Computed example of a mutant assay.
Amino acid sequence: MAKGLLIVLSEPTAGADEDEFNRWYSEEHAPEMIDRGAAVSFRRLRASGIPLAAGIPEPATYVAVYEIEAETAEDVEAIKAQLGRTKHLSRGMSSTLDLASIRAAFYLPVD
């Protein structure tokens, strides 16, 4: 059972067709993460635009939450190795993804 998470925050490129960005991410990119064995499931969400409190900005418009089978740093290293076996995703990257906007982290359960 998946116990860890990979959380990826991202933005579409300026002027990009957001519908195409979302289609590519949800129908091509995220499913490939599962196909390659890096995750067992994913969910994508869009920021509401409503701040939690004054002075606390939303970090990104889009977030992808991948459930991963990881409980330890060693498990995360194995997932990274799985992803690193090929330099690029076989389904390709989209020009609608702003690569500079990506922020990501693996999260493990707290004992």
Rank of each mutant, 00 (worst) to 15 (best):
M1K: 11
M1I: 05
M1G: 13
A2Q: 10
A2M: 06
G4H: 01
L5G: 01
L5R: 11
V8T: 07
L9R: 04
S10W: 01
E11M: 00
T13M: 03
T13E: 07
T13S: 13
A16N: 02
A16V: 05
D17T: 05
D17F: 07
E18L: 01
D19A: 15
F21L: 00
F21G: 01
R23E: 03
W24A: 02
S26G: 06
S26Y: 01
E28L: 08
H29S: 01
H29A: 04
H29N: 08
P31Q: 01
E32M: 07
M33E: 03
M33F: 15
I34H: 02
I34D: 06
D35M: 10
D35K: 13
A38D: 01
A38I: 03
A39T: 00
A39C: 03
V40R: 14
F42P: 07
R43V: 00
L45V: 12
R46H: 09
S48F: 04
S48W: 06
S48I: 09
P51F: 02
L52F: 10
A53G: 06
A53D: 04
A54T: 06
G55H: 05
I56Q: 09
P57W: 05
P57D: 15
P57Q: 02
P57H: 02
E58Y: 01
P59R: 09
P59L: 03
A60V: 00
A60N: 14
T61Y: 02
T61R: 14
T61F: 06
Y62E: 11
Y62N: 08
V65G: 05
V65L: 14
Y66I: 10
Y66M: 12
E67H: 03
E67Q: 11
I68R: 10
E69P: 07
E69L: 08
E69Q: 13
A70D: 02
E71L: 11
A73L: 12
A73P: 09
V76Q: 02
I79Q: 03
I79R: 07
A81F: 12
L83G: 10
L83W: 03
L83K: 15
R85E: 09
R85H: 10
K87F: 12
K87Y: 14
R91I: 15
R91A: 13
R91M: 07
G92L: 14
M93S: 13
S94F: 08
L97Y: 13
L97E: 11
L97V: 08
D98M: 02
S101Y: 12
S101A: 07
S101F: 01
I102S: 12
A104S: 15
F106N: 04
Y107K: 00
Y107V: 12
L108Q: 00
P109A: 08
P109E: 02
P109Q: 00
D111C: 02
